[in-house]
Write a protein that binds this DNA or RNA. Sequence first.
DNA 1: AACACAATTGTTATCGGTAACAAATTTGCA
DNA 2: TGCAAATTTGTTACCGATAACAATTGTGTT
Lengths: 331, 331
Amino acid sequence: MSKVTISEVAKAAGVSTMTVSRVVNQKGATGQQTEEKVLKAIASLGYRPSKIARSLTTNKTNTIGLVIPDINNPFFPEIVAGAEEAAWKAGYSLVLYNSNENQERELEAVELLEDMRVDGIILACSRLPDNELLEKIESHSAVVLINRFLTAPKVATVSVDYTYGAMLAVNHLLTSGHEHIGFVGGTEESHSTQAHRTGFITALETRNLDADPRYMVYSQPNESAIQEAVMRLLERQPEITALTCYNDMAAIGALQAALELGRRVPEDLAIIGNDNIRMASLINPSLTTIGISKHDIGSNALELLLASMSGELTDKHLLFKPKLIVRQSAP
Amino acid sequence: MSKVTISEVAKAAGVSTMTVSRVVNQKGATGQQTEEKVLKAIASLGYRPSKIARSLTTNKTNTIGLVIPDINNPFFPEIVAGAEEAAWKAGYSLVLYNSNENQERELEAVELLEDMRVDGIILACSRLPDNELLEKIESHSAVVLINRFLTAPKVATVSVDYTYGAMLAVNHLLTSGHEHIGFVGGTEESHSTQAHRTGFITALETRNLDADPRYMVYSQPNESAIQEAVMRLLERQPEITALTCYNDMAAIGALQAALELGRRVPEDLAIIGNDNIRMASLINPSLTTIGISKHDIGSNALELLLASMSGELTDKHLLFKPKLIVRQSAP
DNA sequence: AACACAATTGTTATCGGTAACAAATTTGCA
DNA sequence: TGCAAATTTGTTACCGATAACAATTGTGTT
């Protein structure tokens, strides 16, 4: 345990603590030989300034909170990596909470981050209702939401244009000649599901086709639930020849459902995913999907947060345009 | 920004700050009606005690540092999840660094964690040489290493018995009748590679077979490098009919190499991975692999750390026994 | 009612730094 | 050489909480 304090260094160097502080922070003028004395004392004692103590006076922790719903969902590690990378470059540390898709835990995490006096927080895919979210957020000076739109002062957002992505997917399928296209979503409240569905409907309506509610299915975001939901959908509406899924894990669940029902992919059933997680190119058949740069989302979120912290902007909303990646599952 | 301090609460409740502190921490006796007054004041002001200030006096941050080499490597998110879960339950927060397999960055991360006065650190798969690692570690009061053995006071470790796992793999292949088995490792310095190779060699020698160095190949831990290394290996030693890989990503690289060379898996080439990442069961052919419970590694590491912090043990070494999971790639 | 003792509350110093101002030293120039 | 201005250093107070001890209030007993 490092126990060397600034006053010990000051004593060893024969100067005041302020002088040591000035040398450490390279702030305020410092004389040549004094500086050397101090640096020598620091080195010989192995002094490392306490960020805790510093934070108390400066009212700044150089720390950022990141709350994600499920780190095991391959969508998120890349976002975390992007954010961590940007944070590192800017001299910030990341405090990570994995809410496990649990609202209460998400709330508590945001509160804890407040207790820790983090300089800002990034909330990914919050499942909290608007009012609760707003209430918890207002005690923070800088907030960035990922994939969740919210108009509020101090709140910036970084989102993927899922609506646009879904339209790309549906148009691709329509162009390939599919006439009965199903939609596989997550929970109905989830914003990405809603955005995706909007694109699904819009793309169909643009071509004067009806989006039949019976062709849409929702599910809890885990593979077996998805697989089951898709199986029910396909048994109920066997005329479906193509599926757009709100993310790649759902698409993989759909693949398994197709396998289970003896439907060949893509011959009998075309499947398009969303997110282009690494797995998408490695499974068989490889997954046609909508690609988004998750790393960029993370790094942009963090940079937006830094800007927001420094008061350069109060709110700003980034929207990433995804693009279609054609592979085997929907050629 | 929460700015309510304890003295404001004290003023509002008409008591001293110590009384407020006692109510907040439920420590020391407190009178009924005073407690109510204080709680009311806390609620109405929205007071949240500063962990920063508290940490300064108590010399405890309720914070744990976690350094991992690559969060995009699917081996790690589960470990992080396990550690985060256990930390959450114990009331600790996690500070995460992603070193990107970079030694310098890893060093810096450990130093920063010291500056933050975290209560303990978990270092996953450190690539630092022993002496540097020891030097940096000694300023921390509690350390747990994952997949890295090191005998030192205050240092506990949680490791997977890769050697045993590799033996399982080789024995499975030998039992299936393979006579020329190749080994695919990561960088030669990596401990998991070394442990894996030891198992590979031991399993062969147990059956009085020689482990031919020409059958072993090493590579940087990224898919394309692995793929290329495997292709060179297979072209050089075409008699090889089976490969054991030091992890699943390497096995997937090997699969791609086989595809590239027109070798069918498992008919022409059997492949066994290691780690049982989620992808392993989803790719085609599904991957025979060595299964380890990564979530448990993370949670055990954290619990060990907590025990170490509370002085219950100074060093302890956990070794997880993996087990063979037979799938299509090596039936 | 008086006293001893327990329960509750308050005071002061401190954790390890930095802000803000004051003091001391150096420098430049008439 | 002297003196104002610039540079370097030191002092004091404070950030927001808690530890340790002191003071007060309440309780039961005879």
